[in-house]
């Protein structure tokens, strides 16, 4: 049998100092398009603390390190167990969910600093809270659903081999968090919804297209999805930086999805050309 440390998924941690305080440097803004400013908070760290518990502490004690009374920091959160995608932000320069960001790992020593910034590829609502409605808009545009006949009792769905289920399941764990888009050099901040359909869609949507194309009933809408992904802002805008797959918290094989959609779009374009 193996010991815990042999199997720990993380690099060995520097032992965290109990009873310490940590400095949070937070990039804040009062509203969309407003000026951003840094504020610092000194937060006492109990055992098991994560970024969420520290933001909760700040909400109850909104005083900066210089003794200035301020407002609680606004941020988006939900499940706190890295399955809803809400609390995504940029922590020490890297995009991730803040709930699974443990302070012992990031700031083990007294006075260590953690910086929090909102994602830069989405408009700020307030402080660390951003507007990701573009991602949901894109899911509509690529028809990310199975076109069933309705919710009435019409018997079982298509049978499926376990290997296919395993492929679909991983793709289907995408929580629309936006990490892959934050890390992508081709995906740009877009404030104007008018441009949503011509700016690069990014890895998440391409992977969802692959998911629904892989389902026996979902496949019926494959031509519509490929049409949406072959023009401006489609799969050809991918610059192949492969940052997306490295930051995906669900380990979704995003580059495989992009390649699969790229091939499908090429075949679809040829078929359309020869059909005339």
């Amino acid at each position: 049998m193996t010991s815990p440390t042999d199997n720990a998924p993380h690099a060995p941690r520097r032992a965290a100092t109990p009873g310490r305080s940590v400095i949070f440097r937070i990039l804040r803004a009062d509203g969309p398009g407003g000026a951003q400013r840094w504020e610092e908070f000194k937060v006492p760290i109990p055992a098991g603390a994560n970024v969420i518990s520290c933001l909760q502490w700040i909400a109850a004690n909104p005083v900066t390190t210089s003794g200035q009374r301020t407002t609680p920091v606004a941020w988006d959160s939900g499940c706190l167990e890295e399955v809803c995608g809400a609390c995504t932000m940029v922590i020490n320069g890297k995009v991730r969910q803040s709930c699974s960001c443990l302070i012992d790992e990031y700031a083990p020593g007294e006075g260590d600093v953690i910086t929090l910034e909102p994602m830069s590829k989405f408009p700020v609502v307030r402080d660390l809270w951003v507007d990701r409605s573009r991602m949901f808009h894109t899911l509509q545009r690529i028809k990310a659903w199975v076109p069933i006949d309705g919710t009435y009792d019409l018997g079982p769905g298509p049978a499926e081999r376990p290997a296919d289920q395993e492929t679909r399941y991983v793709l289907s764990t995408c929580m629309t968090c936006g990490c892959c888009l934050e890390a992508c050099p081709q995906y740009k901040l877009e404030r104007d919804p008018e441009n949503f359909d011509t700016a690069f869609v990014g890895a998440a949507a391409l992977s969802q297209a692959r998911l629904f194309n892989a389902h026996k009933t979902g496949r019926d809408l494959k031509p519509d999805r490929l049409e949406a992904l072959m023009g401006p802002g489609g799969v050809n805008d991918c610059g192949n930086a492969q940052n997306c797959v490295q930051v995906c918290p669900k380990h979704i094989p995003l580059t495989e999805s992009i390649a699969a959609i790229g091939r499908a779009v090429t075949i679809h374009a040829f078929a359309r050309f020869f059909r005339g």
Partner: peptide, 18 residues
């Protein structure tokens, strides 16, 4: 369960695909 299956929920499968 049938309805969810039709919607495409990736329920785990047996080796036979059930």
């Amino acid at each position: 369960i049938d309805l969810l299956d039709r919607m495409g929920v990736p329920f785990n499968r047996t080796s036979e695909g059930q």
